[in-house]
Design a protein around this nucleic acid. Structure first.
Lengths: 253, 253
DNA sequence: AACTAGTGTGTATAAAATACACACAAAACA
DNA sequence: TGTTTTGTGTGTATTTTATACACACTAGTT
């Protein structure tokens, strides 16, 4: 589990690069023959039993009406992780969020205005905690499964991050970042079924998770459900961190 | 399996950036407040039943006598993969080599001369095919396990790539790139034992690989061994590629 | 009071991983 | 030429893990 926590703000003498002057900067980069560096965040959320991704309307004419990931040029005095975290904070207002680097994309022609290498980050947030801000600007939560064309190579980036997530969620306890702190086992299973696009046996799913002994019974129950309420659990990160990793899983390919 | 194959050389008008003028370029970047971008290759080989990594003596005074990964600034008109491949070709003279991006490292202070973001690549080569060129320059094959301090954050990068390899080799058929085309099962097992630092049962190891049905009996036998010679196999990449990947492996963390 | 919808649990079976032992072949040496 | 050495090649029993599957329970609704 990576919870990036920042201790430093970008240095005060660093000009903040926002959506406004980014075109000028790119033009400058291009004319100087310099490679720009950006980060792009694939921000996943889980809502209505579906995996969603947070996108914004592209501000480039060329990509008129196309959806784009949230990204920005990397500041001169900030780490890559910091840059990704800054974007996340600016856009969602959320702190203490799951964030992890996935891959760098640097094809020569991927940005129309200049040569820009981008580092893709994957972030998982609880969509309900964020609900408030999404109507302020052109941000929207999109289903990842039914998604039309996107700006730049962002479709490719999203695909890579989605596949990364599908794999990662089976080996690491990421999924809980998409859920409220306290969740029912049904919610957890819905999450896995939605992300992996599989049907799972309820009893075996429960058995699996309980056998890991990382779920804590909170003693609370679901409310406002039109049926017998399920127990609410929380994930025990401390216990997970103390667990020793094995380096041998068995060869299989 | 990623076998990067290049179809384009860097454009002719792109100045080739080599070890000679790199310092001048970095100085220029720094004074302009520009972020440089490089690739670093972690080139693994397998020799004497040990995992080795190809390193070079750092040319920076600050890192006098420290070992460094093979890297270079990314050319303006080449993709990241191309840049990594170029380095590989320049240093090892080898083509058609396993190469895969692992991670970007971009901490602010990681390079003493300027802000440089580097993309780390992992490469696996058959050390015997390369034997010839290693004495020409200050290149050396090092054991990965007993390795002293390194230049820059290269120790960190190597560690990440090594862990990446340990995981990757269990899920994808990378290992064969470290062996000759035809290999014995003993060699293959030695490889896995060395990389993962575990002891494996010989019979179960064989059973596992045979059950995958991806090893082809070449009909040939080992030679020059002071005991009963083992059969030589080769890995059937075509068959592997045709296999459908499953997206459900089972939750386990 | 009966209905509905989803929770909570246990067991039988199949598949996979592990542990383990002996016959065989080539080279080395006497 | 036969005896030793060393590592190859194979099969089976046992344990562990994954899968398949059914019925009682409970809260809210009618």
């Amino acid at each position: 589990m990576n919870r990036v926590t920042l201790h430093n703000e970008p240095a005060a003498d660093t000009p903040v690069i926002g959506q406004k002057n980014i075109k000028t900067i790119l033009k400058q980069l291009e004319s100087d023959g310099i490679i720009g560096i950006s980060v792009d965040c694939v921000i996943f959320g889980f809502d209505d039993n579906e995996l969603k991704v947070l996108l914004i309307k592209s501000d480039l004419e060329k990509f008129d009406n196309k959806w784009s990931l949230l990204g920005d040029l990397v500041n001169n005095h900030e780490d890559l992780d910091e840059a990704a975290y800054r974007i996340l904070r600016e856009r969602t207002g959320m702190d203490d969020v799951y964030l992890e680097q996935v891959k760098a994309f640097g094809e020569v022609g991927r940005h129309p205005a200049a040569r820009v290498v981008t580092i893709a980050y994957c972030s998982l947030i609880n969509i309900e905690h964020h609900q408030l801000k999404i109507l302020d600007n052109e941000l929207h939560w999109h289903r990842v499964t039914t998604l039309s064309e996107m700006a730049f190579d962002h479709r490719k980036i999203l695909d890579v991050c989605y596949e990364w997530l599908q794999k990662r969620i089976q080996e690491h306890p990421l999924g809980f970042s998409l859920l409220p702190k306290k969740f029912s086992l049904r919610e957890l299973q819905n999450l896995y079924e939605a992300i992996l696009d599989v049907k799972l046996d309820r009893r075996n799913f429960r058995k699996k998770f309980f056998s890991m002994e990382l779920l804590e019974d909170t003693g609370e129950l679901e409310t406002d459900v039109p049926h017998r309420p399920g127990k609410l659990y929380k994930f025990n990160y401390d216990k997970y961190k103390k667990k020793e990793r094995k380096k041998w899983f068995g060869i299989d390919f």
